[in-house]
Simulated scan of single mutants.
Amino acid sequence: MPRRSSKRSLEVIDNDDEEEYETTSTNNHKRGGGSNHNFTLSQQVPEASQGIPNEKPSERNNLEKMDKVARAKAVTDLSRLILFKGLEKEPIDRLKIIKEAGLNSMRASGAIFSEASERLRNIFGMELRRIPKYMEERKSTPAKCKDRYYLQNIASDYDGSHSREIHSIHQGSKIENGLVLLVNALIFCKGESRSDGSRWILGRDLYRLLHSVDDAVPGEPPAQGSSRAKSHSKCSRFQQNSLTPNLDALMEQFIAWDYFIKERATEDNFASQSVEDGDFIYTMGPRSAIEIGRKQIIYFCAEILDEEPDPTMLKEVEEDTMEEEALDEVFMEEA
């Protein structure tokens, strides 16, 4: 975000320590608020994600030749495994899950994966989506993210009511989604830009800003090698007897779910300020792009600040979208 907006966002968070913000929205929510900020999140379209690539013709032929019972079992086993993992928000690695289902020796595994995806779409209204094209092309995106899929609810939800019904079931789920949105907003407002268009925030800055929103959140990340750093994976995602997020545990969980990407900070990848041993930096991950999207985050920041969405950032998103649509047209023509 341009320096003007970045500075204001920091002032809002740093100078209003006593104000509480309730950010319990995903990209499909249409609500939000604070004690003195009465805003309504607009319903913005998330990033254009990619679907499953077509299987090889030979794999489809091999699938058609399979015994009907064996074919049905293979598709059912893989569909069930994808569904259970996907509902736990685990990223789906295509090759790994085919191996887990015992299908890696079959010469029709790609076609079976397509069949399983089709079944999930038709029966459960869930679809496997892959990393957006613009993010796939970034040098800073880890290679492991480029063949991962994320199970998404594809029900039409123009006013956000469907998502509110789902996420209002569990208070913890609402808080987790709100925290994901808030962290992404801080990355956009305060993150350091790279030449590939990504934005990164230093962990120490992230903790400090979140502490100013809720003083029950630690003001700094756990020191490397400390008992706090070693125990977060065994802790609840919320602090004892409260709904205050356990930021250490939740950030690691969000990284495992691919909401964020984490790197060790060095002078080469984070040159705007001095870094220390054990420092990490964070950026938006593919799941955040698919479920929330940059446009929703831009509008979220603008409405908190009571200003218009930044036209420069909106133009950047639109340019990426237009480029991806052009590539899709070329792909469809070639297909």
Rank of each mutant, 00 (worst) to 15 (best):
L83W: 11
F84R: 15
F84G: 06
F84W: 10
K85H: 07
K85E: 06
K85G: 07
K85Q: 08
K85T: 06
G86L: 02
L87A: 11
K89E: 14
K89Q: 15
K89S: 14
E90I: 12
E90G: 05
E90W: 09
E90L: 08
E90C: 10
P91K: 04
P91H: 04
I92L: 05
I92C: 04
I92H: 04
I92A: 05
D93S: 12
D93I: 00
R94Y: 05
R94Q: 13
R94F: 13
R94C: 08
L95D: 15
L95W: 11
L95Q: 15
L95M: 13
K96A: 15
I97A: 02
I97V: 05
I97P: 05
I97H: 08
I98S: 04
I98G: 02
K99A: 07
E100L: 05
E100S: 10
E100N: 08
A101M: 01
A101H: 03
G102W: 02
G102Y: 03
G102R: 06
G102T: 04
L103D: 04
L103Q: 00
L103F: 06
L103G: 00
L103M: 02
N104E: 15
N104L: 08
S105W: 08
S105N: 13
M106C: 09
R107Q: 13
R107H: 15
R107M: 11
R107P: 09
R107T: 07
R107S: 12
A108Q: 10
A108E: 05
A108F: 00
G110C: 01
G110F: 03
G110T: 02
A111L: 01
A111R: 00
A111Y: 01
I112H: 01
I112N: 02
I112S: 08
I112Y: 03
I112G: 00
I112W: 03
F113P: 00
F113L: 02
F113T: 01
F113R: 00
F113K: 00
S114I: 12
S114D: 13
E115N: 06
E115L: 04
A116P: 07
A116F: 01
A116K: 02
S117D: 04
S117I: 00
R119I: 11
R119W: 15
R119H: 12
R121M: 12
N122K: 14
N122P: 02
N122E: 13
N122L: 11
I123Y: 10
I123Q: 12
I123F: 13
I123G: 06
F124Q: 15
F124M: 14
G125Y: 03
G125H: 01
M126L: 15
M126E: 03
M126R: 05
M126N: 01
M126F: 12
E127L: 02
L128P: 02
R129F: 07
R129I: 10
R130D: 12
R130N: 12
I131S: 13
I131N: 13
I131H: 06
P132S: 09
P132V: 01
K133T: 11
K133I: 10
K133A: 11
K133Y: 09
K133C: 07
K133S: 15
K133G: 07
Y134R: 09
Y134S: 12
Y134I: 07
Y134M: 07
E136M: 13
E136F: 13
E137A: 15
E137H: 10
